[in-house]
Simulated scan of single mutants.
Amino acid sequence: MFARDVAPGVHRIAHADVNVYLVEDDDGVTVVDSGFPATFAHVERGLQNIGRRTDDVRAVVLTHAHFDHVGSARRMRRRWQVPIRAHRDERFLAAHPYRYKHERNRLIYPVRYPACIPVMARMVVAGALGVRGVDEVTLFDGGECLDVPGDPLVLHTPGHTFGHCALYLPDRDTVIAGDAIVTLDPYTAARGPQIVSGAATADSAAALASLSAIADTGATHLLPGHGEPWHGGAAAAVELALRAGPS
């Protein structure tokens, strides 16, 4: 699914319950996250939908390097000759996207939360079991503005992964939250603002603590890595996520 202008100059590609965002300005396009292997074709069509070509893409920026966010990054790097950018603490995970720390056994979730099974099935069809990592990653530290279209300010929001980052676009009143806060948890199928369950989160306490950086932006538009965009204010979304707690 493609949705134009989910925030000013930011477009959403939703595929297999994972969101990829296209951030455009006069200098070109930044692709935020890359979904699964099969997401690649959807991103190319999304670029066409906004009248852009693949050679307008200046960079792919990863909020984090789990397999469902890095799935097309290797192909984008090779086909488009663009840098893949990520926090330095994501370097290993970008190359090995299945080797991530998590708090709880993933196998119990389909039994406890059977509503997640269709979500998982869509992910498998999209290539979730065959993701190849990317070794060539341009690293950043967090706290800086990236010199890519949209000039996002990097907010280091560890917890889901150790190098997880959100991207704040102050001139667009928007924060791209990645999986720091989502409106659909793929492992429980629960909807509404929340952190991702312990099946895929390294440290839930740290993830909840990191939400303050997102709330402090005061952004109206919050664009999550999974689920529908939230336009009721980042602070309100964070309050609901804190109330929901870990799962």
Rank of each mutant, 00 (worst) to 15 (best):
P193S: 06
V31P: 10
G35N: 08
A202P: 05
D56L: 04
T161F: 01
H164G: 03
P114A: 05
P158M: 11
H87Q: 13
H226E: 11
A202K: 10
I84W: 01
A202D: 11
A7H: 06
A180R: 06
I214P: 12
G51R: 03
A95E: 15
G130T: 13
A73K: 01
D216P: 06
D27G: 05
T63A: 10
M76H: 03
F2T: 07
C116Y: 00
H15M: 09
T188L: 08
P8E: 08
V6G: 07
P114T: 09
D17H: 15
A59Y: 05
F2N: 10
F36W: 13
F67N: 03
H160V: 10
G218I: 07
P118H: 11
V82L: 12
I108Q: 13
M120R: 14
T183V: 07
I214W: 07
P114Q: 09
L169F: 13
G133M: 07
A86P: 08
A65I: 03
V61I: 14
A115N: 04
L62M: 14
L223S: 09
G71E: 09
V31T: 04
A121L: 13
G46S: 04
R52N: 06
L223P: 11
G192Y: 06
L240M: 13
R74I: 00
L47C: 06
M120D: 03
A115I: 00
P37C: 06
A166T: 07
G9W: 03
A41W: 04
V148Y: 05
A180W: 05
D171H: 14
I117M: 12
T217V: 03
A189Y: 08
E44G: 02
D89T: 02
G233V: 06
C116G: 00
T54S: 15
S34K: 05
V32T: 02
G227T: 10
R45D: 15
P83C: 10
V111R: 14
F92L: 05
R77E: 14
A41L: 11
A41Y: 03
R191H: 12
D141I: 00
E144P: 12
P229T: 07
V82P: 12
P97T: 01
A86Q: 07
R99M: 01
R58P: 09
T217H: 11
I214G: 07
L208Y: 05
S72K: 03
G159E: 12
R172G: 10
D185Y: 06
V57G: 11
R122W: 01
V57Q: 10
R106S: 12
L129R: 15
A207W: 08
A235C: 02
L153D: 04
H11C: 07
L139H: 04
S247P: 13
M120I: 13
I108L: 13
R172Q: 12
C165Y: 02
R243D: 15
K101L: 13
G133V: 06
K101W: 01
T183M: 02
W230N: 12
A59V: 09
F162C: 01
V82W: 06
A244T: 13
R12F: 02
E144D: 15
V124A: 14
L22Y: 09
T63V: 08
Q81I: 00
D135G: 14
L139E: 15
G143F: 10
H87V: 05
